[in-house]
Design a protein around this nucleic acid. Structure first.
Lengths: 235, 235
DNA sequence: CGCACTATTGAGTGCTGTCAAGAACTGTGG
DNA sequence: CCACAGTTCTTGACAGCACTCAATAGTGCG
């Protein structure tokens, strides 16, 4: 499996974003024996389900995922979107059981990090990288929370877009081009508003030429004004 | 410092909630050499400030803390409240710098866990406990996010109270008696609503005998109906 | 090409934010 | 113990924004 000359980590395009960040030859090979890449998943496939034993967390290699919780009444809450280099599934460590479910938003791959290898990660030297991933995840959660406290829908959406933009930049991608493989319904749900409100605001922002909205891609034309909107200084 | 016969971990009333969970004699002593208890802090004292180097995270021993972010316009966002056995300060690991500030809500103490000792925690055998703390923190963040997506103020408050209740239960305390050392303003801020709205809902819940609200303590009289309210089935 | 699903657009109600005033609480000093 | 000042909390009136309901338009897929 890993006896070939080039490990899956060495050939991974996401290696500068994940646990492999800053690692060299031997360390990369050692890491490759710890984490396991999954087969490509397709839209709607489950990475894990709420209730599954949480014996591992995951780092996105390609594509995107959403995590969500379904309550006793069948209401779905989208708790997060995950892009390459981002870690998910860690909240399950609290009770040893995943408390949310995760599905692929399009064709996507991950690396599976089993809970048992976490101590090994420190000896390999990728402990700090793990902390960075966990920290970024934590930070994202904080930003989402702060964003949700904004009452005005347009400010929430503006901040959501700018947050996505920052994550694209961190990935080394064009920060003005935001892939949105999730549905509008998912975005609205995640932002705590109705599909209608989201649709209206997107239409308004498009008319004002602040963004160009396509089905699976939103382009930022004026991040400056979007930022002003996010801070609801004016409109 | 730790040459006495009983380590600060062995004598700590919070030891079954924190990193010490499940550890015995020798392990406890080893842990006590890794983590450092802080001197009692008083209301308003800073545990860390946004911008400080994030070389450690903290576990609450007693009292309570709040974390918050202040943006460029001076707006404050309360990102979380922390009770005994809960971990805070981990989001700073993303960039090596704390992105939020933390202050004591009343007289409070913590244990400081330096980032350098994290590998040692695994060898002591408290790795799983660390994961549990991190997982619980993650889970709390998720719950907060879900809660903030609820549009109705009374549902948000009901869920907030029930969440606090669960945390009290986890601490081994009476789940019906919720210490609220934070101000109403802080709670309102954290829940993404105005002080006035919070005040009105609390008054309404009190009149309906669902809760008994005092300045620094809220008592739940009917968790059942509060849960129904949280799910906004009826009113 | 037609169907199902998703997204957009339109009108009306209700809840929460805003502004404003008053009440209760906290701590200090006499 | 009481009086006082500052803060924190409560209560009231009004307006704006987002939700609800409803219909139309667009998109993807067989």
């Amino acid at each position: 499996m890993n006896g070939t000359s080039v490990s899956h980590c060495e050939s991974c395009p996401t290696r500068h974003l994940c646990l492999a960040e800053g690692l060299e030859g031997e360390q990369l090979q050692a890491l490759a024996t710890c984490v396991r890449p999954c087969a490509p998943m397709h839209k709607g496939d489950y990475l894990f389900r709420a209730g599954d034993p949480a014996d591992a967390c995951f780092v996105v290699r390609s594509g995107a995922f959403k995590t969500f919780v379904v309550n006793e009444f069948g209401d779905e809450y989208i708790t997060g979107f995950y892009y390459p280099g981002e870690i998910l599934g860690t909240s399950g460590f609290a009770a040893g059981v995943h408390d949310e479910s995760a599905t692929a938003l399009d064709t996507a791959t991950t690396c599976r990090v089993r809970i048992e290898v976490l101590p090994d990660l420190w000896s390999i030297g990728t402990g700090p990288a793990l902390l960075r991933l966990l920290g970024r995840h934590d930070r994202q959660a904080t930003e989402d929370r702060i964003n949700l406290t904004r009452t005005r829908a347009d400010a929430r959406i503006a901040r959501f877009l700018l947050n996505l933009s920052g994550r694209m930049k961190h990935q080394g991608r064009d920060p003005a081009v935001l892939p949105t493989p999730m549905s509008r319904t998912d975005i609205a749900n995640h932002l705590g508003m109705t599909l209608e409100s989201l649709s209206r605001v997107i239409a308004r922002l498009s008319r004002a030429r602040l963004i160009t909205a396509a089905r699976t891609e939103i382009t930022l034309n004026d991040a400056e004004r979007l930022h002003a909107l996010a801070c609801q200084l004016d409109d």
